[in-house]
């Protein structure tokens, strides 16, 4: 595969590290004779782009512009199209984030490209770029292969590829934007977005809370369990939305994907949007009052009971 293009992602001036996994995937896809080009759009891109200069990357482009401060589709799309104009690619990879999935699908629609969002891997089939996703309750791998003459746009889930180590030799160049940033019909009028202070992805043990904790009182128990285990605290979107926990502790579709050695799910029913973020944990203990809670299907240990009863027992056993 000669040319693979990566659209990296910047969140409030911080490089989203899934971008590096995309570079890893792009390198594997491009092979020895191909090239990998990386674009980082966003305000402050120039200052954050250095890690993108990984081994095997031919070109790192930055589109650092005030008009790209908050993500809206049209200006970002215009920038990516401008970057691709002189650098046609067979495959374009983005992180499978809320931005990446939106931008990737928009890009595919604009280019008439094949699109696969939330891919678990990319590669080639019969010389054509392909991407796959495991679905149907983890029973089926669906492989989508780009039709002849059509590029593939794929957004990659966390874990789809390894991030490369070391740094490369490409220069970081600013993309000339003359007029490329179009007027956007959409406008971000207000943001209520937290700064990330914890990185759940490195945690060995995570104690996570769901709506079943009931309130701050239940949450205090979870906190004590986390402290006793030396664990990080995590939660579902419902818990974050209720204001009981900061957003950087959210696990699941719009939060972190985690793979700790031990994951203790407390009062989490286990909607698929949460489970996608914790399915690969090595050991899962789930505590829930509902014996039919879907979380139990992903659990190695299943405790049906009220966490207000169960957790104090665990604390006692832990000598806390």
């Amino acid at each position: 595969m000669p040319r693979v293009f990566v659209v990296a992602e910047l969140n409030d001036g911080v490089l989203n590290d899934l971008s590096l996994q995309c570079i890893g995937a792009a390198r594997a896809m491009a092979g020895a004779d191909g090239t990998v080009v990386v674009l980082l759009p966003g305000t402050g891109a120039a200052a954050a782009a250095a890690p993108l200069n990984a081994p095997g990357v031919a070109e790192v482009l930055v589109a650092d512009d005030d008009r790209l401060a908050a993500y809206t589709t049209e200006p970002y799309l215009a920038v990516v199209k401008a970057a691709l104009a002189g650098r046609p690619a067979e495959a374009i990879l983005l992180p499978a984030t809320t931005i990446g999935n939106d931008l990737g699908a928009a890009l595919a629609a604009a280019l008439g490209a094949a699109c696969v969002t939330d891919a678990d891997g990319v590669g080639a089939e019969e010389g054509r770029p392909a991407a796959w996703r495991v679905g149907f309750d983890r029973k089926v791998r669906t492989v989508w292969v780009a039709a002849e003459g059509r590029p593939l746009v794929a957004t990659l889930r966390d874990g789809a590829a390894e991030a490369p180590a070391g740094s490369g030799t490409a220069a970081v160049e600013a993309l000339s934007l003359d007029g490329a940033v179009s007027q956007t019909p959409c406008r971000v009028v207000r943001r209520d977005v937290a700064k990330k202070t914890v990185n759940l992805r490195d945690a060995k043990v995570i104690v996570a809370a769901g709506a079943g904790v009931g309130g701050p009182e239940g949450l205090e128990l979870i906190r004590r369990l986390a402290t006793a285990l030396g664990a990080e605290l995590g939660g579902t979107r419902a818990v974050v939305d209720a204001g009981w926990m900061s957003a950087d502790r959210q696990i699941g579709q719009t939060g972190a994907t985690v793979r700790p050695d031990l994951y203790i799910a407390c009062g989490i029913s286990g909607a698929i949007q949460h489970r996608v973020g914790m399915l690969d944990s090595r050991t899962v203990i789930a505590i829930n009052t509902d014996p039919n809670a879907p979380i139990f299907r992903s659990a190695h240990y299943r405790i049906v009971g009220d966490l207000k009863v169960v957790i104090p027992k665990l604390l006692k056993l832990l000598g806390a």
Binding site: V134, R138, T142, H300
Partner: peptide, 23 residues
């Protein structure tokens, strides 16, 4: 126009042995 074609394959089940623990 069709942009892609589809192929599906079975994924071997990743069996989780769930042990029920009495609280």
């Amino acid at each position: 126009p069709l942009t892609l074609r589809v192929r599906r394959e079975a994924v071997p089940p990743r069996a989780i042995e769930t042990a029920t623990v009495d609280p």
